[in-house]
């Protein structure tokens, strides 16, 4: 871990202003940042501690949604009675992630910004275009069982590891930010994470100094909410495939469906076409397969992760069957 200066931010604007300085990182939970700093994957020269900013509240919004402060801990968000009652998919996704200790520390903003678990990204002696642009992607021809099958580029096949963000994608969340000049903006979560394309090192739409202040959730859409996480051990493991689904169905017919996927892509994955195919369709194998086809259109494996394509298909089928049952 390289030496850094440590500063505790007293106000949000001060934090954003301080962070304009190159080499600055905000630290909140620190569960991913310190992990990476110890391995010298992240080497900030300044840390701005935002833990004592007043960003730790969950508030009702006037439209019937929720506004979640950026430093609300994952465990507190998962346990909030409003989230449990109205946004079960989010609560379940949060509870599926990491361990209780990590969830007690990890924050809403930090979870959105967590970085990939690609083995080669984590190892500074290996090529990685995300960590060191131009050095190559060791995962492409390497061991890539946990890697992406969608939205990849020839420079990077890393996945986004978050569970929370997958549920938020299904919920059409918005990410609220404040930039160094004190200007606020709201970024739809669909746009917040970027495709790796030619610049895998740039992962989000955030500008230098721009700070995530909150995530807002619109009122919960109608229907059954499910978060299904498929992984190698029963707990404390990242998703091979996960599905966040909100499906409104009755009498064997689907009124609407929202589907987001984790473990498959460089960002929480959602395909409008798949949902369009399901809307108004009868809840049967043909419709489910059609949706899976749309989701997995263009999917390609890189060897060890080929199984993710049939696994995603089967998991989606199981989730849709469960969501439309009764």
């Amino acid at each position: 871990m390289k030496a850094f200066t440590y500063e505790r931010a007293e106000t949000i604007t001060r934090a954003a202003a301080a962070a304009v300085k190159p080499g600055t990182k905000f630290i909140a939970g620190g569960t991913n940042l310190l992990d990476l700093m110890k391995l010298q994957v992240e080497t900030p020269s300044q840390l701005v501690d935002i833990n004592r900013l007043p960003l730790d509240k969950i508030e009702d919004t006037s439209d019937g949604g929720l506004r979640i402060g950026a430093t609300v801990r994952n465990s507190d968000l998962a346990a909030d009675p409003r989230v449990r009652r109205r946004y079960g998919v989010l609560s379940r996704a949060l509870l599926s992630g990491a361990s209780a200790q990590l969830r007690n520390k990890a924050t809403t903003g930090g979870n959105l910004l967590q970085r990939t678990r690609c083995y080669y990204f984590y190892d500074v002696t290996k090529p990685c275009n995300k960590r060191e642009p131009g050095s190559g992607c060791a995962a492409l021809g390497g061991f890539n069982r946990i890697h992406a099958v969608l939205g990849t580029s020839e420079l990077c096949i890393a996945t986004h590891p978050s569970d929370m963000a997958v549920a938020m994608r299904a919920l059409d969340a918005n990410v609220e930010t404040l930039d160094a000049e004190g200007k606020a903006r709201s970024i739809p979560i669909a746009d917040f994470h970027r495709f790796p394309a030619r610049t895998p090192q740039i992962e989000t739409m955030l500008k230098p100094g721009e700070i995530v202040t909150a995530v807002t959730l619109p009122p919960p859409p109608p229907g059954t909410q499910i978060y299904r996480k498929v992984r190698d051990r029963a707990s404390y493991a990242f998703a091979l495939v996960s599905v966040a689904a909100i499906v409104d169905a009755a009498g064997g017919r689907i009124r609407s469906a929202r589907l987001a996927f984790g473990g498959l892509a460089s960002k929480p994955w959602r395909v409008a076409q798949a949902e369009e195919r399901l809307a108004g369709a009868s809840a049967d194998a043909e419709a489910f397969d059609g949706a899976a086809n749309a989701v997995l259109d263009g999917a390609r494996g890189y060897g060890h992760n080929d199984f993710k394509v049939p696994l995603a298909r089967r998991t989606l089928r199981a989730v849709l069957t469960e969501a439309t049952r009764a």
Partner: peptide
């Protein structure tokens, strides 16, 4: 290619946890 073990930590070298 490198002669190394890629999953050299406890996040990716899975040993059983309580839930297993």
């Amino acid at each position: 290619r490198f002669g190394h073990f890629v999953n050299h930590d406890l996040a990716e070298y899975h040993v059983p946890v309580h839930a297993d």
